[in-house]
Structure formats: structure tokens, C-alpha cells
């Protein structure tokens, strides 16, 4: 099976999205410091088997769309000292994202 596949996507490049601010039970790949933060979709990377299911020896279905989401550093860290345009990009799966209000 290929690593990624073409599947229906909920968000598109430029969309403002919020990372779900939920606690986890078990494995996930969404870092704590991004939860509840708002960013912009920078890339739609395609469908991947769901790591939250693969971690328990399941087939990883349904597949999850993976997005590259861009966050401003100053939105993430209190009293950030660097240039205002500094940002980071993180891979976030669709089940963790909602459209920003």
C-alpha cells in the first residue's frame, strides 16, 4: 500500500484552522504546544493511514488527510523575541482541525 492517497479533503491552502484543544488517551502526533492554536493551511499532503490506529496494530482506516499548517511563532510562545514574521510548520491530521471562527 502506498504511503499516501488521493482522498476527499476538508480544508484547502490558505484556510485558517484551529487545532483541537483536547487531551488524548493513547498515541497521537499532535504536539501539546499547538493545541487550541490557530494557523494557516500551507499544504495539503494527501491521505495517510491513521497513526492513532496503526499504533494499536489496526489497519489505520479510515485514512486521514495530512496538512502542513503554518503558525506564527509569536502566536505560540509568550514574549517571543524574534522577528514578527517567524513561523513554524507542523504536520497535523484532519481529525485534529476545525475551521477558525
Amino acid at each position: 500500500m502506498s504511503a499516501h492517497a488521493r482522498i476527499a479533503t476538508r480544508f484547502t491552502i490558505g484556510d485558517r484552522v484551529v487545532v483541537a484543544n483536547r487531551t488524548t488517551l493513547g498515541h497521537c502526533r499532535t504536539p501539546w504546544y499547538l493545541r487550541g492554536r490557530t494557523g494557516t493551511v500551507a499544504e495539503v499532503q494527501g491521505g495517510y493511514h491513521d497513526p492513532e490506529r496503526l499504533a494499536y496494530h489496526k489497519p489505520g482506516l479510515p485514512m486521514q488527510v495530512l496538512y502542513k499548517v503554518r503558525f506564527l511563532q509569536s502566536d505560540l510562545w509568550r514574549a517571543y523575541q524574534g522577528p514578527a514574521s517567524d513561523h513554524l510548520e507542523a504536520d497535523i491530521y484532519e481529525s485534529w482541525l476545525e475551521l477558525a471562527p
Binding site: T23, T24, L25, G26, W32, Y56, H57, K58
Partner: peptide
Amino acid sequence: SPTRKTFLRDGGDGRAVHDVGG
């Protein structure tokens, strides 16, 4: 199938043990 569980970091405000970014 193994069970889902998460161990929280002391004073980590709800973050898991390994999730130390920041």
C-alpha cells in the same frame, strides 16, 4: 489489541510524559 492510556507529565498541565515541546 493493547489498551489506550496516557501518562501525564508532573506539572505539565495535562500534557503527556513524552510531549515536552516548549
